[in-house]
């Protein structure tokens, strides 16, 4: 009985807290403060059409670097906790094969999904999308391969190399900003010329950084899926 009453009291108190928040919200009718600055100066400052990309990559670049680091730590923790014991080769249990449709369809679809992921993160500064979405698309292509083929294994050396190299270049680009522009320009995207507004080769280093983030997130999520899948005895 007491195990029901205490949660009920807690949830009701959270309800009243949220009610208090709810009654004090006034809907926005105008951009204010920092958002207004970004909306007015984002295009001329950074040359990116997609303002969310401009904020994620440049204005709040340090947060994104920290976030990629958190993702890396979570992936490492999962790999550490679920490390596989070496098994005898002979004792592989029989597994049910995936259906014919899934096997054939995945062969056709996996390259297309991978290309779509690359398209998303290369066009991150022009259209909706970016490194995180493109990385997730690439990871779902790997997931499709896992579902279609029981014996499919990812090459951990290649994945680890791609992941660490893209992370390293991300930090190097950030430090180049410190060296070449000025002391408070870590991860500034204006290392390269801004180019013509709306073209694919524009917005300074934003496409490069988002490509690196896309590769890193894609390989990391794929490794997380691979570790969670394990051997499925």
């Amino acid at each position: 009985m007491i195990k029901r009453i205490i949660p009920a009291i807690l949830v009701i108190s959270i309800f009243f807290m949220l009610l208090k928040v709810m009654t004090n919200i006034t809907p926005k009718y105008d951009l204010t403060g920092v958002s207004k600055t970004y909306a007015e100066q984002g295009a001329s400052d950074l040359g990116a059409m997609n303002l969310v990309t401009a904020i994620v990559v440049t204005y709040r670049g340090l947060d994104t670097l920290g976030e990629v680091a958190v993702l890396f730590m979570a992936g490492t923790g999962i790999a550490l906790l679920l490390r596989r014991k070496k098994k005898k080769k002979g004792s592989v249990a029989k597994k049910r094969e995936a259906s014919e449709i899934l096997q054939t369809g995945s062969k056709l679809l996996v390259p297309i999904i991978m290309m779509f992921g690359a398209y998303i993160f290369i066009n991150g500064h022009l259209s909706p999308g970016g490194g995180f979405q493109g990385g997730a698309a690439i990871a779902s292509a790997v997931m499709l391969m896992f579902l279609a083929d029981n014996s499919f294994k990812i090459n951990h050396k290649v994945f680890g190399l791609i992941e660490s190299l893209s992370g390293m270049f991300y930090v190097i680009i950030g430090i180049l900003g410190l060296v070449m522009i000025g002391a408070d320009h870590f991860l500034d995207s204006r290392l390269l010329p801004l180019g013509e507004f709306g073209k694919i080769l524009s917005a300074g280093t934003i496409p490069i950084i988002y490509t690196l983030v896309g590769l890193k997130v894609g390989t990391e999520l794929a490794s997380i899926i691979d570790n969670m899948k394990g051997d499925l005895e």
Binding site: S35, Y38, E40, I55
Partner: peptide
């Protein structure tokens, strides 16, 4: 732009 778009932050 600041009168036409939603808040990006």
């Amino acid at each position: 732009a600041s009168e036409l778009i939603v808040d990006p932050v």
